[in-house]
Design a protein around this nucleic acid. Structure first.
Lengths: 141, 141
DNA sequence: TTGCGTGCAAAGGTTTTGCATGGCA
DNA sequence: TGCCATGCAAAACCTTTGCACGCAA
């Protein structure tokens, strides 16, 4: 949750700025690298991976793993204060990749249930519900 | 859902039988391979992967991807009739990495809620709840 | 000045694939 | 007999790591 990085570097800021610039889209580590090389900016891919990892730990971005073999996706989700009053959940469509943000009071019961019945403290900012969205359910199947 | 394989081979049966024998446990592809080599039975790892893939398509086993880097887990879930009564959820501890395997009737309401209120068809085999487990909550914080 | 962050290249680990061989129907 | 499945090894792939150098504080 707290800031892990001790130094504030240009690379870290650039990675975060890019993620913020494409807010709402999910991008892979490779796409982040391509963006920088395409812009003539040089950032090592190891640094991109390391900073993405840091940003996930700090809660500024989320990491989504759709499929073990395809690359992980990242997305800017902002500071937690945004979702303070109502809890924020994410649904990810496995077909079209769409990300759905849910602000649902009823879902708060989920965290409470997991805590009271299973002694598990749910981290809603990291948890993603995978499934099929409305649109894809109509088309396919 | 339908059977994909045209021929019935010894290898396929053995993979399925092993998964059935360890029902309730999560095993990786590597563990399946190790079991066979440990038993003096020779099965190519490519075949193990191919058959696990077939069994997932046929709905006899489930594949769980907890984390992009660690290997995928497989579990026998039986024919579809079983799945209706026995939904499987997963909790992943962010601190110790422990994977908790939940079979909870109350959680079935979650899928129903997402479907009826948000038109989202939850895929319980892909969805993982992230958070802090009981043990780590006591120690750390 | 201290030591963390970076960058490059190489390693790491899981899964897939090419191709010749073997086995089911 | 016709094909599909197998097995081996190598490739493919994403991600992490080792190490020397650079840079923030």
């Amino acid at each position: 949750m707290a800031t892990r990085t001790k130094y504030r570097t240009k690379q870290k800021e650039m990675v975060l700025e890019y993620l913020m610039a494409v807010e709402g889209r999910h991008v892979t580590a490779a796409e982040v690298c391509e963006y920088f090389t395409g812009s003539g900016i040089s950032i090592g891919q190891a640094t991109v991976y390391r900073q993405l990892d840091n940003l996930v730990k700090e809660g500024l971005i989320n990491k989504y793993i759709i499929d073990g073999n395809s690359p992980a996706c990242f997305e800017y989700v902002g500071r937690e204060e945004h979702c303070h009053h109502d809890v924020c959940f994410h649904c990810k469509c496995e077909k079209c990749g769409k990300l759905i943000h849910l602000h649902c009071e009823d879902l708060k019961g989920l965290g409470e249930h997991l805590y009271s019945h299973h002694q598990f403290t749910l981290d809603t900012s990291r948890t993603v519900f995978y499934g099929i969205c409305e649109d894809c359910a109509q088309i396919g199947e």
